[in-house]
Design a protein around this nucleic acid. Structure first.
Lengths: 112, 112
DNA sequence: GTTCGACAAGTAGCGTAGCTACGCATGAAG
DNA sequence: CTTCATGCGTAGCTACGCTACTTGTCGAAC
């Protein structure tokens, strides 16, 4: 799928995958790919800056760990992040119904 | 609602409103506002460039008319536009289910 | 024993596309 | 006569995801 359509929804997705448990960056990418049946195959240049944005915003916290010689930075949701996720979900619902009113068939304009 | 979330879906919305009949730019803005209960209040600087993009792409055609001294440019959907709209609808459906899998409650991860 | 590919993190620079803030013109209202 | 709604349009900004690249370890292949 055209990934640029994600604009503005990526943060919500990241928070959502972290909701189920802490993951490191690479694993987040794989989780997104897995849970979307391969539809979301996001490059590191998209994920890592987004994670740092979320960390600056206080929505996630990161801890370094070394696993078999490899450094990995594991991210976990903060309370603030959990609240942000709730807001994102509400926003998504609103966005979905608003756009859906134009693009979903069945209830177009005047429902007369 | 945060309008920047529209990214990538605006063309689809414009095609959708024009699907029900030709409108001029200003009327399109009002139609979007009306059909979205005021959630979509898009500035002219968003709409006009988008319409010209769609026209360059051949998805809409425009005709000038003068109404009580005021020039207005009326846009109508072309066949190509109708096809594009169908594609946009399909894309929207895919986007919706993909993102929804993360943000809609009820069917989160392992559906075991 | 060197090379290659998966894992893991990261940055610089680009492009797209919507938004802000304008400018211009007409007609009606006050 | 000034203000506001209608109506079109553009220049420049900004946000943000993407491309392409670098660095580094480890295990497997050759």
């Amino acid at each position: 799928m055209k990934a640029q359509a994600l604009h503005g929804h990526l943060d919500a997705l990241l928070l959502a995958v972290l909701e189920q448990g802490a993951l490191h960056g690479y694993a987040i990418i794989e989780a997104l790919r897995a849970r979307s049946d391969g539809n979301l195959d996001l490059p590191t240049g998209t994920i890592y800056p987004a994670l740092r944005r979320l960390e600056r915003a206080g929505h996630v916290a990161s801890t370094w760990s070394t696993v078999s010689g490899r450094e990995r930075r594991t991210y976990q949701l903060t309370d603030s992040g959990r609240r942000a996720l709730a807001g994102e979900r509400a926003g998504w619902r609103e966005f979905q119904t608003t756009v859906g009113r134009f693009l979903d068939p069945g209830s177009p304009p005047a429902p007369a």
